[in-house]
């Protein structure tokens, strides 16, 4: 009995030792030589494998960083400057800071602004819809509302607002990876500078139709009138194909264009107070769901600038107050 036990223990021990040696030899034989820095870089990556950097995943990005002579062409939009600094530290390279970006939905075709004329009855996909027809409203350029951007977002930063039928970007969750930009068949979503204290001014429309047609399709469309371009002291606004565009690198957030826009197509977000109105009462867009829906609309107390920079809660701007003005104007 004892002999059997001893033999068993001995046999198994010997077997274990032999196999360990075999494993060691095999592991040595098939060892892949890899720069150890790749692992180190990968460790500091966000690990989302979103592909926002243009590489297949975080490891591919790390490998590219290690191989690159400098980091000018590599940027992780998800991790931003912080991660890039860490990467640079690992590799002993320098990194130039890039302004943080955020996805911006450039369509203000809410249910209220755009009368619905058709009823879609196919696969719920913007791609399918875009290939089929102009969309349910008279606007050929606007948001189709099927949420391809929502499903493209890996970070849960985009959701559809059931009230407006438009996608809403959660600025905190958005990493500017650009997946939604690629997913949108109408090219509505754009990556823009997040701006100081998350303040941005942008044209929330891409309708290239002539003024009257654009206006007919959507009450807050850009009609390409060019008033904003004239008002801009920094030459940041260009009007091409009947639609204005604000170059965020030139824009200084003075908001002269916002008050000038006759349809309320230019949006300013995260400003503590409404844009100054120089002489006349300027209309403002009827609905601007730019901040997350979780932001309490009743947050009437003005946020301090420091807190709004960290958490962009919808400031107590005068939007609700401006609402009647728009309606008055339209009547």
């Amino acid at each position: 009995m004892t002999a059997t036990i001893i033999w068993t223990i001995a046999a198994i021990t010997i077997l274990g030792i032999v196999l360990a040696v075999v494993l060691y030899l095999v592991a040595n034989k098939f060892k892949v030589e890899e720069d150890p820095r790749i692992d180190e870089v990968e460790k500091v990556m966000p690990g989302a494998n979103c592909g926002g950097c243009g590489f297949a995943g975080c490891r591919a990005f790390a490998q590219s960083c290690v191989e690159a002579a400098n980091l000018d062409n590599n940027y992780c939009p998800v991790g931003g400057n912080e991660v890039m600094k860490k990467v640079a530290a690992v590799l002993g390279l320098e990194v130039h800071e890039k302004a943080p970006m955020v996805a911006v939905v450039r369509c203000n075709g809410t249910c209220a602004n755009r009368p619905v004329v058709n009823d879609y009855d196919g696969l719920k996909s913007c791609k399918v819809k875009a290939a089929l027809y102009s969309g349910d409203t008279g606007c050929f350029y606007g948001c189709l509302g099927c949420g391809d951007c929502v499903s493209a977002c890996q970070f849960g930063a985009i959701s559809m607002d059931p009230e407006t039928g438009l996608p809403v970007v959660d600025e905190e969750k958005c990493t500017a990876c650009g997946a939604c930009v690629k997913a949108c068949p109408k090219k509505i979503i754009e990556l823009r500078n997040k701006g100081p204290k998350n303040r941005r001014v942008f044209v929330s429309c891409v309708n290239m139709e002539k003024g009257a047609a654009a206006r007919k399709a959507c009450s807050s469309a850009c009609i390409g009138c060019g008033k904003c371009a004239k008002a801009c002291p920094f030459d940041a606004i260009t009007v091409e194909h009947n639609v204005a565009y604000i170059d965020f690198n030139k824009c200084r957030l003075c908001r002269k264009c916002v008050v000038e826009c006759p349809t309320g197509a230019i949006h300013d977000v995260n400003f503590p107070a409404p844009a100054p109105k120089p002489d006349k009462q300027a209309p403002k867009p009827a609905a601007k769901p730019v901040t997350p829906a979780s932001a309490p609309a009743a947050a009437a107390s003005p946020q301090t600038e420091a807190s709004s920079a960290v958490k962009p809660v919808k400031p107590a701007d005068a939007r609700p107050a401006a609402k009647p003005e728009v309606e008055k104007k339209e009547e």
Binding site: Y133, S134, G135, G138, F140, E209, A213
Partner: peptide
């Protein structure tokens, strides 16, 4: 000029 076809495309 541009006019919309049956799919609403100019």
């Amino acid at each position: 000029g541009l006019r919309k076809d049956l799919a609403g495309i100019p």
